[in-house]
Design a protein around this nucleic acid. Structure first.
Lengths: 234, 234
DNA sequence: GTGATGGTTCGGTGCCGGCCGAAACAAGCC
DNA sequence: GGCTTGTTTCGGCCGGCACCGAACCATCAC
């Protein structure tokens, strides 16, 4: 089937080398499942065109689908794929995207402030949380990017995460994810995903509108200030 | 200049979405500077075609060039680019590449045994070294991928690396790089690069032929066995 | 100078693939 | 049963781009 490494690499890159498919993948970075029609509208193409693109993305292994009634739900095939797309996006030239119009300006400001990145937190909020955990000795960024032993017990004892959930996956527990707006690393990996889930479950964070943006609640602010020295996000 | 994220992502991916350009980038993963003609031959295209591809790769920021006499030397723009290409290659389906013919079989066996990956060590040798450092308590892979304090002093005191060299870069000190043949993580980042350089300088490792393959010397084997519990690489 | 070699520029060709609209399916709703 | 809505298939159009060869330019060797 597969011929040579160059062919494989080119085939994989070709999946993302089209603006429409790239827009779809970027939209899917919120981790949710989208219908084919939603993605077509988001990318600004006809439904028939979206069908072809989805076919390529799925048979290329980047997306998985679930058919339900007359809808076709599609989402990223896993965190590894999300990671890959984020990495690529981060390598994009420091994108000055001056939002035009008030609506876009406030929307992009909200995204810069805090958002989900597939399954973990990013934006200034994600970076601030990562920094706070680092100064608290829970993360070690001097020799790479890893949880300290103190960090592991903090996750289980203070946040109440399940040690089993943290350990079962073959995915690394903690890893850095380079944020493409902040140009800083923030916590990803299994730990990043579980922390994000827990903060949302606790209502310490809430989603803003229907986008990927999140914001911190008053309860969350006080709780996080109790557990960490988390500074205010303007 | 840059319009929207989807466009930027697609543009970046498009650089690697051609088999010829992918072959060039894969060849350049050895970290050396190649001439335009060498790359043309390697990729199997006419020199004029190679010129166009190199132009795109350079203006896209993936490659840099240095003109010298009538030669044009070209190499990857930096370790971040190398990292990106390695990541993409690792996401490629577990590539069964049954080498045909004895020459290719022995060549690919040598590569699987040990090789350089841009500026650090990979293959079974790279994985074995990483494992040995982990069991010796020099690396921590339980909570991510990071050097321990003991690991840092080991690099400077035992291997004699310069602490200044290790710290000056904005690149992470240690990070995991997923090996696409072994499907295992191995040491990359500044520390990985410096270790590789030192082992080659000390003649503990030598390059095999003109490829990326490396092998361990008798002196290297005894020295590494003195410093670590490094098992034999078959 | 002449000749050889590495690299680039320039036409020209051909194919791949992204796009749409129209029509066909399929699943719900009444 | 009909009507709406979400999705797919099928032609057909069109642009982009990967490729080559031939001519041209630059550098080195003599």
């Amino acid at each position: 089937m597969t011929m040579n490494p160059a062919f494989d690499l080119a085939s994989l890159a070709a999946l993302l080398a089209d603006q429409t498919r790239a827009a779809m993948c970027l939209a899917l970075l919120d981790g949710r499942a989208w219908t084919a029609g939603e993605l077509a509208a988001q990318a600004g193409v006809a439904p028939s065109t979206a069908t072809e693109h989805l076919h390529r993305l799925i048979s290329g292994g980047l997306l998985v689908q679930r058919r339900q009634g007359r809808h076709r739900y599609v989402q990223l095939a896993g965190s590894a794929v999300a990671q890959l797309i984020e990495d690529l996006a981060a390598h994009t030239a420091p994108s000055r995207t001056p939002a035009r119009g008030l609506r876009e300006a406030t929307a992009s400001a909200a995204l810069r402030r805090g958002r989900t990145c597939y399954d973990h937190l990013a934006g200034r909020l994600g970076v601030a949380l990562t920094d706070a955990m680092t100064t608290a000795g829970l993360l070690d960024q001097t020799g790479g990017f890893a949880l300290t032993p103190a960090g592991l017990t903090w996750l289980t004892d203070e946040l109440g995460l399940d040690p089993v959930d943290l350990r079962q996956s073959r995915r690394p527990l903690a890893r850095g994810c380079l944020d493409w707006t902040e140009r800083r690393q923030h916590l990803a990996g299994t730990a990043g995903a579980e922390v994000c889930r827990r903060l949302l479950d606790n209502q310490w964070l809430v989603k803003v509108g229907s986008s990927r943006a999140v914001k911190i609640t008053p309860i969350g602010k006080s709780e996080l200030r109790r557990l960490l020295e988390l500074p205010d996000i303007d």
